[in-house]
Amino acid sequence: MLTAGDELFSRRGIRAVSVYEVIERSRVARATFYRHFPSKADLVLAFLARREQQWTLGLVKAESERLGDTAEERLLAIFDVFDDWFGGDAFEGCSFISVLLQMGADHPLGSASIGYLENIRAIVREHAEEAGLRDPDGFARSWHILMKGSIVSAHSGASRLRPRIRGHPSRPGRR
């Protein structure tokens, strides 16, 4: 059910997908669906939590830490991760931004999205603190704006950030 919801929500948006479509695609009984997700909002919240695990922690955090030896390199590596993401077949934008824009900041799903976006900014803030920057919170806010802007830009067709933002001579394939 969550996989079906994920596929539908990420391609068509929250408002455009009905519970009936998720039930039909996942091939479960209606009662089974409602036993696990009492409402569509509960399914969307599970979808967002799953996206945080897969995208925020599994891709952005893990890959930037793998690519960067220092805090500064990890910050720059975020855009290398984005560049690979934007150029891949799986790029569909940021679910947190999409849900926030569809539902609005005052809606519980929009509010949840704001929380997930703050978690991404916290990763940036952590790297900024490790780098010894004078204003890690201010830096994280500005860096996060750049991150979100690059996602919106990729949606508009500017999908590649080439040339690479950062390079590391010890990593083959990175400029």
Rank of each mutant, 00 (worst) to 15 (best):
D6H: 07
E7Y: 04
F9Q: 03
R11F: 12
R11M: 13
R12I: 10
I14W: 12
R15S: 12
V17G: 01
V17P: 04
V17R: 02
S18V: 07
S18Y: 11
V19A: 15
Y20L: 09
Y20G: 10
Y20V: 13
Y20K: 14
V22A: 03
V22S: 01
E24I: 02
R25N: 04
S26K: 03
V28F: 05
A29Y: 09
A29I: 01
R30V: 08
R30C: 07
A31V: 06
A31R: 09
R35I: 02
P38L: 03
K40E: 01
D42Q: 14
L45M: 13
A46I: 03
L48R: 01
A49K: 12
A49V: 01
R51A: 11
R51H: 14
E52H: 14
E52L: 02
Q53S: 15
L57V: 03
G58R: 06
L59F: 09
K61G: 04
K61L: 15
E63K: 14
L67I: 05
T70H: 13
T70D: 05
E73I: 06
R74N: 07
R74D: 09
L75E: 11
L75P: 08
L75A: 10
A77Y: 03
I78S: 07
F79S: 02
F79W: 02
D80C: 09
D80V: 13
V81C: 10
G87F: 10
A90R: 15
E92F: 10
E92L: 06
S95E: 05
S95C: 07
F96E: 00
F96R: 00
I97Y: 11
I97K: 12
I97V: 15
L100G: 11
L101I: 12
Q102M: 05
Q102P: 05
M103N: 02
G104I: 04
G104C: 03
G104Q: 09
A105L: 04
H107S: 02
H107P: 05
H107I: 06
P108L: 03
L109N: 13
G110P: 12
S111H: 06
S111W: 00
S111M: 01
I114E: 14
I114G: 01
G115R: 12
I120L: 15
I120P: 00
R121E: 08
R121G: 12
R121I: 00
A122H: 09
I123C: 12
R125C: 14
